[in-house]
C-alpha cells in the first residue's frame, strides 16, 4: 500500500441489481404441477426406449434424445431417501428455519431422484434408505411446494 494513503478516503460504490425473472414451466412441467395441485398425484414420464421413469418429468430423454412428452405414468406417494444433507444455517432464501433436511427421494417406480424437504424426523436420526411418504400442501400452489415435504412412513 502507498505509505501516505489515508484509508478513510477509500470509497466503495453501493449498488443493487434487481434480478427479476419469469420461468416458463412448459407443457410438461405444467401438467405435473396441475396434477399435483388438483389431484394430489405425482406424475412421471417413461422413456419406452431405455425404460427409465423420470420424476420430475421431462420432454426428452437425454440418453436416447427422444420425445417422450406423452408417456405419462402415475406414481404413488412413497419412496426411499437416497441421499440427504442437514441445513444448519439460517438465511432469507432458505425454505425452512434450520436445522432442516434436504433429501433426494426416489419414488417407488421411478429411476431418478426428486429433491425435497424431509420433515417429521429428528435430523440426527435421518439415514439413507429411510422410507418416506409425500405430505401434500394444505394450500396447493403451482410450484414443487405443492408437496409440502416428505416424512417417514
Amino acid at each position: 500500500m502507498h505509505p501516505n494513503f489515508d484509508l478513510s478516503d477509500c470509497y466503495t460504490i453501493q449498488g443493487k441489481l434487481a434480478l427479476p425473472y419469469t420461468y416458463f414451466a412448459g407443457s410438461v412441467g405444467s401438467i405435473f404441477l396441475t396434477t399435483l395441485r388438483d389431484r394430489r398425484k405425482i406424475m412421471g414420464i417413461k422413456c419406452h426406449t431405455c425404460g427409465k421413469v423420470f420424476v420430475p418429468p421431462r420432454q426428452t430423454c437425454e440418453r436416447c434424445l427422444e420425445d417422450i412428452r406423452d408417456q405419462w405414468v402415475e406414481l404413488g406417494d412413497t419412496g426411499t431417501l437416497e441421499n440427504f444433507t442437514v441445513v444448519r444455517y439460517a438465511d432469507r432464501h432458505l425454505p425452512r428455519r434450520p436445522p432442516f433436511v434436504l433429501g433426494l427421494i426416489r419414488l417407488d417406480g421411478a429411476d431418478t431422484p426428486l429433491l425435497h424437504l424431509v420433515a417429521g424426523v429428528v435430523v440426527d436420526r435421518v439415514a439413507e434408505g429411510l422410507r418416506v411418504r409425500a405430505v401434500f400442501a394444505a394450500q396447493p400452489e403451482n410450484t414443487i411446494l405443492g408437496i409440502d415435504h416428505f416424512q417417514p412412513l
Binding site: F24, G26, T60
Partner: peptide, 17 residues
C-alpha cells in the same frame, strides 16, 4: 415474444431436432 408451452431445454430441443 412468448413461448409458454416450452421451457428452455424444450425450446432448444426444437432447433436441435
Amino acid at each position: 415474444s412468448h413461448r409458454e408451452e416450452v421451457n428452455q431445454p424444450e425450446m432448444i430441443h426444437e432447433a436441435v431436432r
